[in-house]
Design a protein around this nucleic acid. Structure first.
Lengths: 135, 135
DNA sequence: CGTCTTGTATCATTCAATTAATACAACAGG
DNA sequence: CCTGTTGTATTAATTGAATGATACAAGACG
């Protein structure tokens, strides 16, 4: 489980972990049922307080990405499950609502917004193809 | 210029002002060239520190919504101008990029994302129709 | 010119989020 | 059972964002 922390970019450590685990799961590098490193082990590896890892794992659990079994460990959940899907939709909906509010303030129509979305999507797709690295 | 502050909802005062001015401009209640209340005047009206208003106005200037003339006042810019339009597009693009990153992590396709966007749009539209109040 | 009003800059204070220190609770497995 | 490992809970320290107090700078205008 490859996780890297940058302590000088302003992004909270627990969030960096959340995002990277999400990525690893989405990319299939962490599969359903697989166990994450125990809180203390990962904390030691990253030279970080165990509570910080605990918080990251808690958020991942709330997002439906992992499941914790009290004295056994933390495991990747089955992402295809209806609950996981509903959770993901909920998170995206919140972001979308923010975007719509902002667009409303700026008097940008839904059609223009979708155009802009598709435009940004292709831009990002193209830049991905050129890169060797992922996030 | 009707602006109301809620000091107990967690949203920073300067942000409330930014959003409400954006709304007033988008709704046409503040027109291009019109002068905003001077920093001190609005601060007194809202019982808030002038620095807080200054910050709101600064952010509005960065967003291209208003323009400040050092010893004369703060004025609404021409929103139809290419510069204002480019600024708005830039702000929305940033939000969209965040959304796309999140969707990518969650393995949600661009098509599903657009569907979700349209869905949220109608939900919000419908709830707007029922309300008497605006933001 | 002088003075009033405009926005600006600097520093202090407050408060919430983040991280850390430490002790607790549950249960798997010998 | 008992011991080691797992996640949990509580409390404190640190940091940064938001706001405030106060003094400065520029120019409009009489």
């Amino acid at each position: 489980m490859q996780i890297h922390i940058n302590t000088s970019d302003g992004v909270p450590i627990y969030l960096q972990i959340v995002n990277q685990v999400k990525y690893l799961v989405a990319a299939g590098r962490l599969k359903a049922g697989e166990e994450l490193l125990p809180i203390r082990t990962l904390a030691e590896k990253l030279v970080v307080n165990p509570n910080t890892i605990a918080r990251a794992y808690r958020e991942l659990e709330i997002s439906g990405i992992v499941e914790k079994r009290r004295t056994s460990g933390t495991y990747v959940t089955d992402q295809g499950s209806p609950l996981a899907r509903r959770e993901r939709t909920k998170i995206l909906s919140d972001r979308i609502d923010q975007l719509l509010a902002e667009a409303g303030h700026m008097d940008v129509s839904i059609e223009d917004l979708i155009k802009l979305l598709q435009q940004r999507f292709s831009v990002i797709q193209n830049s991905r193809l050129k890169d060797a690295d992922d996030v």
